[in-house]
Amino acid sequence: MTPDEILAKVLEEQTLATDSPELVKLRSTREDVETLLCSEYGGSPTIRYGGSKAKNTMIRASYDLDMTCYFGRDDNQAGATLEEMYNDVARVLEKKYSVDRKRSALRLTSKVPETYKIDLHVDVVPGRFIDGNGGDVFLHQSEGDKKLLKTNLDVHIQHIRGSGVTDAIRLLKLWKVLNGVDVKTFVLELLVVDLLSKHKQAPLSAQVELVLEAFRDRVDELSVEDPANPTGNDLSERLDSARPSLSAAADQTLWVIEQHGWATAFGLTNQQTKAERIQILNRAVTSVATPTKPWRSNL
């Protein structure tokens, strides 16, 4: 297979069908969250969906749904300040979920004892509309010096969805997950869009190589700008902290591509049926020379 055929196969493997168990579960969680928020706040907040599905960059290895919970400009039922609102929405969600408080989003994980802390792939983003137009919003930021952030979901979605390089973004998101690269997905997406702005017609493998080479060779020169708030949302801090990780992982991946090929670098697997998988796993068990028994402290 050529590099581009391999990458097309990787993308195919990473595509979630509408009726896939992952998306069925995601839809069910989405409905539960919506019901929970509406039962508390009535029809007041505007609930919309963003994230990788809306941006057309969803992959099996990393899929998520951003749910907005935006209140009207003069709606104080979740709190008068943005911080109060962020905390109040978290309080409501904690009735049913375990909530990890991220910078602006509330990440939901399972609270059910058997599946405790499993990622539910849903982030709820509380915010307040700036005006009556239903576009720009203010979000609370729980980290960093700046506590308030102006943003716009539609602008973000359109910037990525309409970039013409969503396949490259999907592959580089997979690269991030595979290699544990410590960079925010949003920052990575913006970097890819910017680096490929003049290479939209290039073959996929050339696009990916170009991005990885930029990360390896000139990561310190790269910069990103929030399309929804170019002057007010400084992403440089988040990019700066990611530079060493981007550069080191890109260097290793380019080496892997050269030595072992694209299939290894992008973790192309031959998908198996459940029965095949169990068979192979059982062979793996019999191949183990020194078994070990897991344990856990109760303290």
Binding site: N270, R277, A284
Partner: peptide, 16 residues
């Protein structure tokens, strides 16, 4: 050491 750990058998990656 960060990244993904593969579960391999017979030269195939079963999971990661």
């Amino acid at each position: 050491v960060t990244g993904s750990f593969p579960v391999r058998q017979d030269g195939r990656e079963i999971d990661r």
